[in-house]
Simulated assay, not measured.
Amino acid sequence: MSSLKKLSPLLLAILSFQPQAVEVTDELDIGGAVRVNYGWKDYDNNAKLEFELFRADVNYNSDDGLFASAQYRWYQNMDVIHHAYMGYQFNEAQSLQVGVTQVPFGLLPYAAHSFWFGATYYIGFEDDYDAGVHYQYQRDNLRADLAYFANDEYGKGSRFDRYSFDVATTEQSPYQESGQLNARVEYEISQNSFGQKIGSSIQYGQLDYVASVNGGEGIDGNTPNTDDISTFAGAVHWQVDWQTWQLQLQYLHYNYDVKYGNRIALSAFSYPFQIAAQADVVTANLSKSIDVDWGPISNINCYNDYSTVLASGSGLADSVQNVTGCAISAGKFYSYLDWIAGKNMYFVGGDGVGIDNGDTSWHSRLNINVGFYF
Results as ranks from 00 to 15, higher is better:
residue 141 N to C: 08
residue 141 N to I: 07
residue 143 R to E: 14
residue 144 A to I: 14
residue 144 A to G: 08
residue 144 A to L: 15
residue 146 L to C: 14
residue 146 L to Q: 10
residue 147 A to F: 11
residue 147 A to H: 11
residue 148 Y to V: 10
residue 148 Y to T: 06
residue 148 Y to I: 10
residue 148 Y to S: 08
residue 150 A to W: 15
residue 150 A to S: 13
residue 150 A to H: 05
residue 151 N to W: 14
residue 152 D to C: 02
residue 153 E to C: 05
residue 154 Y to K: 14
residue 154 Y to C: 10
residue 154 Y to Q: 06
residue 155 G to F: 09
residue 156 K to L: 15
residue 156 K to G: 05
residue 156 K to F: 07
residue 157 G to I: 04
residue 158 S to H: 10
residue 159 R to I: 15
residue 159 R to F: 11
residue 162 R to M: 01
residue 163 Y to V: 02
residue 163 Y to W: 06
residue 164 S to P: 04
residue 165 F to Y: 13
residue 166 D to M: 08
residue 166 D to E: 00
residue 168 A to Q: 04
residue 169 T to K: 05
residue 172 Q to N: 09
residue 172 Q to E: 07
residue 173 S to A: 15
residue 174 P to K: 04
residue 174 P to E: 07
residue 175 Y to P: 00
residue 175 Y to T: 01
residue 175 Y to Q: 00
residue 176 Q to T: 07
residue 176 Q to G: 06
residue 176 Q to F: 08
residue 179 G to W: 13
residue 179 G to Y: 15
residue 180 Q to S: 07
residue 180 Q to T: 13
residue 181 L to R: 07
residue 181 L to D: 00
residue 181 L to A: 09
residue 182 N to V: 15
residue 185 V to G: 13
residue 185 V to D: 12
residue 186 E to Y: 01
residue 187 Y to I: 08
residue 188 E to C: 07
residue 188 E to Q: 14
residue 189 I to N: 15
residue 191 Q to R: 05
residue 193 S to G: 12
residue 194 F to I: 11
residue 194 F to S: 03
residue 196 Q to A: 12
residue 196 Q to W: 09
residue 196 Q to C: 07
residue 198 I to G: 00
residue 198 I to R: 03
residue 199 G to Y: 03
residue 202 I to D: 08
residue 203 Q to A: 10
residue 204 Y to N: 05
residue 205 G to A: 01
residue 205 G to I: 02
residue 206 Q to K: 12
residue 207 L to K: 02
residue 210 V to G: 03
residue 213 V to C: 03
residue 214 N to T: 05
residue 214 N to Y: 10
residue 214 N to G: 12
residue 215 G to H: 03
residue 216 G to Y: 04
residue 216 G to P: 00
residue 217 E to V: 09
residue 217 E to Q: 15
residue 218 G to T: 01
residue 218 G to D: 02
residue 219 I to C: 07
residue 219 I to Q: 07
residue 220 D to K: 00
residue 221 G to V: 12
residue 221 G to C: 07
residue 221 G to L: 10
residue 221 G to Y: 01
residue 222 N to C: 08
residue 222 N to V: 02
residue 223 T to V: 15
residue 223 T to I: 13
residue 224 P to L: 06
residue 224 P to C: 04
residue 227 D to C: 05
residue 228 D to G: 03
residue 228 D to I: 11
residue 228 D to M: 02
residue 230 S to C: 01
residue 230 S to H: 06
residue 230 S to K: 11
residue 230 S to E: 14
residue 230 S to P: 06
residue 232 F to M: 08
residue 232 F to P: 03
residue 234 G to W: 09
residue 235 A to Y: 14
residue 237 H to R: 01
residue 237 H to D: 06
residue 238 W to F: 12
residue 238 W to L: 12
residue 238 W to E: 03
